[in-house]
Amino acid sequence: MVEEHAEKAEEPGGLQNLRLTLRRLYHGHTTTALRFQLAVIMLDLAVIAFFVISPVLREGPAFLWVDYTIAAFLAADTLARALASSNVARWARQPTVWVDVFILVTLLFPYTFANLGFLRILRLWSLSRSGFIWRPLDRRGLGEWRDAMRAIVNLVTFLFVVTGFVYTSFFRNGAGFEGYVDALYFTVATVTTTGFGDIVLPGMWGKLTAIVTMIIGISLFVKLAQSIFRPSKVFHPCPECALQRHDPDAVFCKACGHKLQIPEEA
């Protein structure tokens, strides 16, 4: 605590005010903060939509302009989140931050990392894990749907990551948008184990891709089913052990036995 106060004392007044303002915008509950958070979420979803179709748009004349614009937005957002964090070193160690930095590198060098561009869709996973996108649900008393929505996000992320990989590796040459649809069709048919067989990937690597897709896809489907059909829980962090999910009528934490005070509206 002494070191943290010392660091704050060393910061210039302008930088400290900027960090406080960003912290209020990213983590606050005022009308201005909620509007700012909603705007960031909408921009993120638009960026993710671009990432989904970017393998097809790569040869377009405006691709680089859009690519570098998104890179500027992502760099500004990452820097702002770092400044809004109370502990920058701990924030920088989070896997979601590493994912965002990797995505930023692929945006700054789009042709150098062309074969890894499909991994940009991991931004959706990063956004999901940060908790930023789920706060509107919590504020409306719909926090019990967070696990199901997160499972859906994980499944959608996986589908489009695999689709991008399949398109880049097997359908890219002269295929265009039709090739991307074929890659998506193959991915969905494989994940659901439907296996129509009208589109197959050639060679040993194609078979290995199909095997990995089926194994991980089935696991994500099971996770989604569990999150929907298991008994509902409420999100109320235990002050002793930080366990997040509890039964709505829980009096004591199942993990540590600490007495809970779960609000009725939770």
Rank of each mutant, 00 (worst) to 15 (best):
E7K: 15
E10S: 15
P12I: 06
G13W: 00
G14Y: 07
L18T: 13
L18F: 05
L22C: 10
L34S: 11
L38T: 12
M42T: 14
M42R: 08
L43A: 15
L45W: 02
L45K: 01
A46F: 00
I48F: 05
V56F: 05
A62T: 14
F63N: 11
W65C: 09
I70M: 03
I70H: 01
I70C: 03
A72I: 14
A72F: 04
F73D: 08
L74S: 11
L74Q: 08
L74N: 07
L74W: 03
L74D: 00
A75Q: 02
T78Y: 00
R81W: 06
L83D: 06
S85L: 06
S85K: 04
A89S: 13
W91Y: 14
A92W: 06
W98K: 15
V99S: 12
F102K: 07
F102H: 09
L104E: 03
V105D: 04
L107N: 10
L107W: 01
Y111K: 04
N115V: 10
L116N: 11
G117Q: 09
L119W: 05
R123M: 13
S128R: 03
R129Q: 14
S130D: 15
S130L: 04
F132L: 11
P136Q: 05
L137H: 01
D138W: 01
R139V: 01
R140V: 02
G141N: 02
G141T: 02
E144I: 08
E144D: 12
A148C: 07
R150N: 13
A151E: 02
I152S: 12
L155I: 01
L155R: 04
F158N: 06
F160V: 09
F160C: 08
V161S: 09
V162P: 05
G164P: 10
V166C: 04
F171Q: 06
G176A: 03
Y185D: 12
A189W: 00
T194S: 13
F196C: 10
F196V: 13
P202K: 07
G206M: 02
G206N: 03
K207I: 15
A210V: 05
M214I: 09
K223C: 06
K223A: 11
Q226H: 04
I228A: 03
I228S: 01
S232W: 02
K233P: 00
V234R: 01
C238R: 06
C241M: 03
C241E: 05
R245A: 10
H246T: 07
H246D: 04
H246Q: 04
C253K: 09
K254E: 14
A255T: 10
I262T: 03
P263S: 09
P263A: 02
P263I: 06
